[in-house]
Design a protein around this nucleic acid. Sequence first.
DNA 1: TCCTGGACCGAACGATCGTTAGGGTGATGG
DNA 2: CCATCACCCTAACGATCGTTCGGTCCAGGA
Lengths: 156, 156
Amino acid sequence: MQKGSLYSHIESKADLLWEVAREGAEAFHAGLDGVADDGPVVERIRAALRAHLRVVGEQLDVATVFIREWRYLEGERRELFLAERRRYEERFRSLFREGRERGELRTDLDDGAAALVALSSVNWAYTWLRPGAETDNLADRFTDLLLDGMRGYASR
Amino acid sequence: MQKGSLYSHIESKADLLWEVAREGAEAFHAGLDGVADDGPVVERIRAALRAHLRVVGEQLDVATVFIREWRYLEGERRELFLAERRRYEERFRSLFREGRERGELRTDLDDGAAALVALSSVNWAYTWLRPGAETDNLADRFTDLLLDGMRGYASR
DNA sequence: TCCTGGACCGAACGATCGTTAGGGTGATGG
DNA sequence: CCATCACCCTAACGATCGTTCGGTCCAGGA
């Protein structure tokens, strides 16, 4: 397709970015929607990381916009997107908070830092993950590392 | 400064990118050079994460090139840079490997995954860290989370 | 069958980008 | 005091980018 032909599908480049950004928000939130809202928090965290990495692996371009390229949004759209993004991060964080409150995670857990480290790990994957690669195993390795840590042995 | 004036300092935009990329490699490797090569591995990991985050906080633009923008390098420079970057990651990984071999970290540790998660966490900071912000505390929070994990209590 | 509409092409537009050239300014040192 | 040099400016160039427009092609419906 020639560059000009694109404009029978979109209104402007900014519009296209906005559409892809919304598609990304939808995909990532839909991933979290598939995570049970009860049961062991540890398994819900695993499911959330799997869902996130799955979107990155299966919709790499959309994920790239949601993760990084959204910052070229302008005006009100930027604010609307940021609200969705903060909501996504908050949904993650509340997983860790709930785990701490229920005693399934350390009672001294800094859930903000925990969500940040977990999301950093899976976000960064958009820079190196091959499109279409298998991601569930990777997500599980991340989950085990984050939950059990690197030293000593954990309770599992 | 007007854009044209820049060219009394550089040869081309590509040259500038190359210079900043090398400056980044130097800064990050210098950070690791400041980490002791003996003593408790756990403290060396802490020092390495501190050093990395310090570069991100103090030289955000240089760090951004080292972490992400290097991919616009072309030809041989790209290969040279990638070798330096791989070496940096390998230096990190060898920390975790040594920790495992010495029994200071889990004997079943996947040191590749460990280095990936640790570096992802600190790399991602270039997207949100405020330039000049204090980073040592943050690095310590990351270190504790990664080493001790999120569930149960660890040996410290 | 013809007509319509959607998808794409090809060429062009103005704006921006990377770069060059020529010139001005101000500090430094012989 | 003048020459020099580093540093920056302005103006312009060609290339690329985002966008528009007229036209072609083709599938589906009347």
